[in-house]
Every structure is written in C-alpha cells, then in structure tokens.
C-alpha cells in the first residue's frame, strides 16, 4: 500500500510538487479524516493550523478535493459501489458489514431521509456469496419534502387532506400518510384535472412502498409516470423501477431505468443500477 509521505508529489497541474514532504507526519496522517469530515472541532483546527506550515498537505488536500466532495455528496451511491465490488472478494466480511449497520439502524429505520437508503445498501450485503436478488438492489428512500406548493384552494377538500397527509409523511408516518393519500386519490378519481393529482399519485405510491406494500404502489406510481410534469414523471419512473425490483421483476425495472438514463436527477443512479439489474436478467436467462 502506498505511503502518503511519498505520494504527495502526484501530478497537480503545472506545479512540480514532487519534492514536497509533510513536515509533521503525525498531523499529516489526519488529512484523510479531515477531508471525510471525521474530525471533531479541536482536531479540525489543529489540522487546519498544520496546513499553514505544510505546503505538502495543502497541495494534497487541494488535489484530492474534488474526489472527497464527490464522495461526500452521495455516500450511499459510492458505498453501494464498494459493496458490490467487494462482494466477490470478501463475502463474509461484507455480510458482517450488513449485520453491523443493520443493528445500528433497527430503532430508526423510518426516521430521516437517507436512512432508508442505507438500509437498502445494507440489505444488499445480506446474502454473502450469492448473486443478489433483484429486491436486494432496490433503493427505497423517501423524497425530501419541504412543502409542496399546492395549487388550488388549500383550505378545503382534497387540498386540505393532502396537506395533512404530507404532515404525516414528513413525520415518517408512512402508513398513516398512505391511508389519507389513498382517500385523496379515491376522492379525486372523477376529477382527473385536479391540479395536485399527479403529486398525490407519486407520494401515495412512495408511501405504500415505504410501508412495505409494493404491489399496491404500482397503480399510483404508474399514474405518476404519465404526469406532464417532468420531475413527477421521472420520480414516478424511478420509484416504479424500485417497486418492480422488490417484486422480483428485473425486466420491468430495466425498461424504466433505461428510460431514466438521460435524467439529470436519476441518470447516474439509473445507469449504476441498470448494470446490476441486467446482470440479474442475464443470469436468470442463462439458468
């Protein structure tokens, strides 16, 4: 494994950094932890002070900044990649990883946005040494919600109920949210022009999915995929693809993921997931 102190001199633009060496290696060794946001304030300050006297570490931090920012921007995506890549090498170790993080997640499984994605990641490593099932690949995470701009009269009827449903959703009470969104969905069935119907369909499907009822999620999510509002249609496709994975229907999922490859929001995720889904399709076809 390469030594950090001999590795400061990699290519950084036009500058020649090959002669730079960390002046205090015991502090320089904190660089990776600093970059990944693991240091507490005191150590953070200590390392930042070190950067004033150590051009080698400042250069190293500079040249790695894009990578670390990218990693921290989407940890679940990159953790999934690591897990998938390691699966063939160290299944037993990754199994332990799954159990370890699953234990930590148990009490808060439906709490904040992102945690459910981590559960999905953990579930991917639950079956060491075996090819993943389609359902293992599903990424089920709540959409961030900061208050939809509800069109129409928000003080009455379906708009009011929709607003109340979303309060349950934000609180992580997906079962209650699904129940009331189901009422809104049914009540507006004869009014397809109701302006918030597509949003209702999307969040109803998502709540059903988060409430572990994928079969029921298909109807509303399919409806959301037909929305004329592109963000809703794309989100509908993404979650419908996840629903099909949960139902062990990778082919249906692959079709939707292919459709999302050009999406600025879901494109890269869809491409990553599609690769694994196709592998499963090929394997099932082969056997």
């Amino acid at each position: 494994m390469g030594e950090h102190r001999s590795n400061h001199g990699s290519k950084h633009g036009s500058a020649n950094m090959s002669e730079l060496t960390c002046v205090k290696p015991h502090l320089g060794d904190l660089l990776g932890a600093y970059e990944m946001g693991l240091l507490e304030k005191e150590d953070q300050s200590r390392f930042e002070t070190h950067l004033f006297e150590c051009p080698a570490c400042l250069e190293d931090l500079y040249s790695g900044a894009v990578v670390s920012e990218e990693l921290r921007a989407d940890p679940s995506r990159y953790a999934s990649i690591l897990v998938t890549a390691s699966r063939s090498n160290e299944p037993s170790l990754l199994d332990r990883m799954g159990r370890f993080f699953h234990r930590l997640l148990q009490p808060r499984v439906l709490a904040p946005v992102g945690v459910v994605a981590a559960v999905a990641l953990v579930l991917m490593v639950f079956q060491p040494g075996q090819l993943p099932r389609a359902g293992d690949l599903a990424i089920i995470e709540p959409l961030p919600y900061q208050g939809l701009e509800l069109r129409g009269d928000a003080g009455q009827g379906p708009d009011q109920l929709l607003a109340e449903s979303m309060e349950d959703y934000v609180a992580g009470n997906f079962s209650a949210a699904a129940a009331s969104l189901g009422l809104v969905w049914a009540a507006t069935a004869t009014d397809p022009e109701w302006s918030n119907r597509d949003q209702t369909a999307l969040f109803l499907g998502l709540c059903l999915l988060l409430d572990d009822r994928p079969n029921e999620a298909i109807g509303p999510l399919t409806s959301a995929t037909r929305s004329l509002l592109l963000p809703i249609a794309e989100r509908g496709k993404w979650y419908l693809a996840q629903t099909h994975l949960l139902r062990e229907d990778p082919k249906a999922s692959a079709l939707l993921l292919e459709n999302l490859l050009n999406s600025p929001v879901y494109g890269s995720r869809a491409a990553d997931q599609l690769q694994s889904v196709r592998q499963i399709c090929n394997n099932s076809h082969g056997s």
Binding site: M36, E40, R72, A79, S86, L93, M97, P112, V115, A118
Partner: peptide, 19 residues
C-alpha cells in the same frame, strides 16, 4: 481500503456529527 471507505460512507449516510 474498500472496507474502510464503505464503513465511512455508510456511516455518513446514517447522519450525525463527526464523532
């Protein structure tokens, strides 16, 4: 290295402060 990064990234996904 894969384990170290996977551990950090999965932990970051769970949220919380640096500690």
């Amino acid at each position: 290295c894969g384990r170290i990064f996977a551990g950090i990234l999965a932990s970051q996904e769970l949220g919380g402060g640096p500690r």
